[in-house]
Write a protein that binds this DNA or RNA. Structure first.
Lengths: 226, 226
DNA sequence: GTCTATACACAGATAGAC
DNA sequence: GTCTATCTGTGTATAGAC
């Protein structure tokens, strides 16, 4: 699998993300015409990600957002009940989107070695397709409410546990070295996060997500495999 | 070298950090009595790091800072000219402190293998001794002014280049595998950052900086050494 | 040196016209 | 559905007493 294939299969676009969001949240959105909602949600999410990822969500004013979207501040409140609500909505949505895709792909394999390799690629490719969302989610995690934060911590723990379980299976099967599985999983997750946190740096150096994935795979294999 | 030894040799304390700061900045601080300045700078920096690292620098109000330090808002403005100034001061100071220590240690060795190992430990140990500063510096990097940001990018580039140069030397000496040195350096830096970015997680799991250093060394050696 | 009181700019949010 | 106008709270920063 490479990124182009992944994209073709999943088709994560701004529009699909918004459609998905509308299906799950049409209760709390005052506007009812789907086409209008999609058009404006795309503007709002896009603008919020752009401004927040430049200077932080707290530093983004509703006026900033209004200018960037081309909507009035009044109009925006038809799509969310307040600034904090927008933040929580976005955090929640990123999580559910990402989790759903991971689960779909991870169910298909059983061999630990292939599972590990697949897992690496799926995570990298999702974070690439939704890079602004992942960056946002990471940098703004401090500001969300307790309930959401617990969910975020839980979700991150799950990701790490998936990696850990694969490593343990590999060790049991005699394929992997006897490293501390907890620590290995942590480090691997850090290397995955590096991709979306420093994406600009890699773009400047013209390193594609596929090349990054290949490199990661090679170094992880060299320290984890017997 | 372990962390206890490092600490004994360097003695990085909040007080030493503030004394150091005062020596370099007494021009821009209105108060002149050193003892008073040190006492209050320690309060201000401590409080600013605590609150910012909880909810972000932008979200921290001067009133918050005033309550946490026990100083009035008026009094604080005797130590910096505005909130933005405080941020830039802190960013600048973290950089110079860290850089100075790294340079001191890195000049002592020539063998690439030992240089790499030393470099790992020195970086981890500095970031441990100044963890709130490192976390702050990373998370608030977006908000600083252009001049400071360029310095920050430059400083980060230098760190990465030091690692890269060591790897290239090791390859030339026939000690290291022929991996892409740029990528390897990036990944190693990411693993170093992981320590201070997720320090709470490791504290909860009772993993010390020494154990983390040992683990990092072992996995880096296993993928980098021939 | 430090405090209290306050200026005044700007934030988020809403009401009501269109 | 969207806009304009505006309310009200909170933010940073300062002036002047002590």
């Amino acid at each position: 699998m490479n990124y182009a294939e992944f994209q073709k299969e999943i088709k994560i676009t701004q529009k699909s993300i918004c459609r998905d969001f509308f299906c799950q949240n049409h209760g709390s959105i005052r506007i009812k015409k789907e086409k209008t909602v999609l058009r404006n949600l795309e503007k709002i999410f896009g603008a919020a990600l752009k401004i927040s990822n430049q200077k932080g969500f707290q530093a983004m004013s509703m006026r900033d957002l209004s200018i960037e979207t081309g909507l009035s501040t009044g109009a925006m409140y038809a799509y969310f009940s307040g600034k904090e609500d927008l933040l929580n909505m976005m955090q929640h949505h990123k999580r559910t989107m990402a989790m759903r895709i991971v689960e779909k792909y991870m169910k298909e394999e059983t061999d630990p070695l292939i599972r590990l390799k697949t897992m690496l690629r799926v995570h990298l490719y999702i974070s690439e397709a939704m890079q602004p969302w992942f960056y946002f989610s990471y940098m703004e995690a401090k500001n969300i409410n307790k309930k959401q934060r617990n969910q975020a911590v839980e979700s991150s723990r799950i990701t790490e546990n998936i990696i850990k379980e694969i490593i343990l299976e590999g060790q049991k099967a005699g394929l992997f070295k006897d490293h501390d599985a907890d620590m290995s999983a942590s480090i691997i997750k850090a290397m995955l996060q590096e991709w979306y946190l420093k994406r600009k740096k890699y773009a400047k150096r013209q390193i594609s997500v596929d090349r990054y994935a290949d490199f990661l795979e090679s170094i992880i294999m060299s320290f984890i495999r017997i």
